[in-house]
Amino acid sequence: MSHAMDVLPYLVAAYVFLTGCYGLATSRHLIHAVGCLAVCQSATYILLLAVGYRAGGTAPVFSDIEPGSRPVVDPVVQALTLTDIVVGATVTALLLALVLQIAKRHGTVDPDELRELRG
Protein backbone atom coordinates (compact mmCIF):
# COMPACT_ATOMS: atom_id res chain seq x y z
CA MET A 1 0.00 0.00 0.00
CA SER A 2 2.67 2.51 1.01
CA HIS A 3 4.65 1.61 -2.10
CA ALA A 4 1.65 2.40 -4.25
CA MET A 5 1.27 5.72 -2.47
CA ASP A 6 4.95 6.49 -3.16
CA VAL A 7 4.54 5.92 -6.86
CA LEU A 8 1.15 7.60 -7.18
CA PRO A 9 2.37 11.24 -7.49
CA TYR A 10 4.73 10.22 -10.30
CA LEU A 11 1.93 8.41 -12.14
CA VAL A 12 -0.29 11.45 -11.69
CA ALA A 13 2.43 13.71 -13.11
CA ALA A 14 2.88 11.46 -16.15
CA TYR A 15 -0.89 11.23 -16.61
CA VAL A 16 -1.38 15.01 -16.42
CA PHE A 17 1.48 15.61 -18.87
CA LEU A 18 0.13 13.13 -21.40
CA THR A 19 -3.42 14.47 -20.99
CA GLY A 20 -2.13 17.93 -21.84
CA CYS A 21 -0.30 16.54 -24.88
CA TYR A 22 -3.44 14.74 -26.04
CA GLY A 23 -5.40 17.95 -25.70
CA LEU A 24 -2.79 19.86 -27.67
CA ALA A 25 -2.69 17.31 -30.46
CA THR A 26 -6.46 17.20 -30.90
CA SER A 27 -7.26 20.83 -30.08
CA ARG A 28 -9.80 22.62 -32.26
CA HIS A 29 -9.36 26.01 -30.57
CA LEU A 30 -6.08 27.82 -29.98
CA ILE A 31 -7.05 29.19 -26.56
CA HIS A 32 -7.84 25.61 -25.58
CA ALA A 33 -4.40 24.62 -26.92
CA VAL A 34 -2.65 27.24 -24.79
CA GLY A 35 -4.63 25.94 -21.82
CA CYS A 36 -3.46 22.40 -22.60
CA LEU A 37 0.12 23.62 -22.61
CA ALA A 38 -0.48 25.00 -19.12
CA VAL A 39 -1.83 21.56 -18.14
CA CYS A 40 1.44 20.01 -19.35
CA GLN A 41 3.31 22.47 -17.24
CA SER A 42 1.19 21.63 -14.18
CA ALA A 43 2.61 18.13 -14.48
CA THR A 44 6.06 19.58 -13.82
CA TYR A 45 4.78 21.23 -10.61
CA ILE A 46 3.37 17.93 -9.39
CA LEU A 47 6.56 16.08 -10.20
CA LEU A 48 8.80 18.67 -8.54
CA LEU A 49 6.72 18.78 -5.36
CA ALA A 50 6.47 14.98 -5.26
CA VAL A 51 10.25 14.73 -5.54
CA GLY A 52 10.75 16.97 -2.51
CA TYR A 53 8.17 15.33 -0.26
CA ARG A 54 9.29 13.79 3.05
CA ALA A 55 7.05 11.54 5.10
CA GLY A 56 5.70 13.55 8.02
CA GLY A 57 7.49 16.67 6.80
CA THR A 58 6.15 20.16 7.32
CA ALA A 59 6.64 23.42 5.42
CA PRO A 60 10.30 24.51 5.35
CA VAL A 61 9.60 27.76 7.21
CA PHE A 62 11.78 28.15 10.27
CA SER A 63 10.13 31.13 11.91
CA ASP A 64 8.12 28.94 14.28
CA ILE A 65 10.04 25.64 14.39
CA GLU A 66 13.58 24.92 15.47
CA PRO A 67 15.82 23.86 12.58
CA GLY A 68 16.38 20.12 12.88
CA SER A 69 13.56 19.59 15.35
CA ARG A 70 11.28 17.88 12.82
CA PRO A 71 11.50 16.84 9.18
CA VAL A 72 10.67 19.43 6.54
CA VAL A 73 9.99 18.96 2.84
CA ASP A 74 12.75 19.96 0.41
CA PRO A 75 12.71 23.74 -0.05
CA VAL A 76 14.81 23.60 -3.24
CA VAL A 77 12.04 22.04 -5.33
CA GLN A 78 9.58 24.57 -3.95
CA ALA A 79 11.85 27.37 -5.15
CA LEU A 80 12.07 25.63 -8.52
CA THR A 81 8.29 25.32 -8.69
CA LEU A 82 7.86 29.02 -7.96
CA THR A 83 10.30 29.90 -10.73
CA ASP A 84 8.51 27.46 -12.99
CA ILE A 85 5.17 29.17 -12.30
CA VAL A 86 6.66 32.54 -13.22
CA VAL A 87 8.02 31.08 -16.46
CA GLY A 88 4.62 29.52 -17.17
CA ALA A 89 2.79 32.81 -16.61
CA THR A 90 5.10 34.55 -19.09
CA VAL A 91 4.66 31.86 -21.71
CA THR A 92 0.88 31.69 -21.33
CA ALA A 93 0.49 35.48 -21.47
CA LEU A 94 2.62 35.77 -24.60
CA LEU A 95 0.92 32.87 -26.37
CA LEU A 96 -2.56 34.20 -25.54
CA ALA A 97 -1.52 37.58 -26.97
CA LEU A 98 -0.44 35.79 -30.15
CA VAL A 99 -3.78 33.93 -30.27
CA LEU A 100 -5.62 37.25 -30.04
CA GLN A 101 -3.56 38.54 -32.93
CA ILE A 102 -4.22 35.36 -34.93
CA ALA A 103 -7.94 35.81 -34.35
CA LYS A 104 -7.69 39.36 -35.72
CA ARG A 105 -5.56 38.54 -38.75
CA HIS A 106 -6.90 35.13 -39.76
CA GLY A 107 -10.46 35.54 -38.53
CA THR A 108 -10.32 32.08 -36.96
CA VAL A 109 -8.71 30.35 -33.97
CA ASP A 110 -9.23 26.82 -35.28
CA PRO A 111 -5.82 25.31 -36.05
CA ASP A 112 -7.45 23.19 -38.76
CA GLU A 113 -8.20 26.35 -40.71
CA LEU A 114 -4.73 27.88 -40.40
CA ARG A 115 -3.08 26.46 -43.48
CA GLU A 116 -0.92 29.28 -44.76
CA LEU A 117 2.42 27.78 -43.79
CA ARG A 118 2.95 24.34 -45.22
CA GLY A 119 5.08 22.17 -47.45
Partner: peptide, 24 residues
Protein backbone atom coordinates in the same frame (compact mmCIF):
# COMPACT_ATOMS: atom_id res chain seq x y z
CA UNK B 1 1.73 35.39 -35.64
CA UNK B 2 0.86 31.87 -36.78
CA UNK B 3 4.52 30.89 -37.06
CA UNK B 4 5.29 32.43 -33.67
CA UNK B 5 2.47 30.51 -31.97
CA UNK B 6 3.56 27.18 -33.46
CA UNK B 7 7.13 27.93 -32.41
CA UNK B 8 5.91 28.82 -28.92
CA UNK B 9 3.75 25.78 -28.29
CA UNK B 10 6.26 23.20 -29.57
CA UNK B 11 9.31 24.72 -27.89
CA UNK B 12 7.60 25.29 -24.56
CA UNK B 13 6.31 21.73 -24.54
CA UNK B 14 9.88 20.56 -25.18
CA UNK B 15 11.10 22.76 -22.34
CA UNK B 16 8.55 21.24 -19.95
CA UNK B 17 9.68 17.77 -20.94
CA UNK B 18 13.21 18.88 -20.14
CA UNK B 19 12.09 20.14 -16.73
CA UNK B 20 10.45 16.78 -15.98
CA UNK B 21 13.78 15.15 -16.76
CA UNK B 22 15.63 17.60 -14.51
CA UNK B 23 13.19 16.84 -11.67
CA UNK B 24 13.85 13.11 -12.07
Amino acid sequence: VQGALTFGVVNSLGAYAMLMGIAL
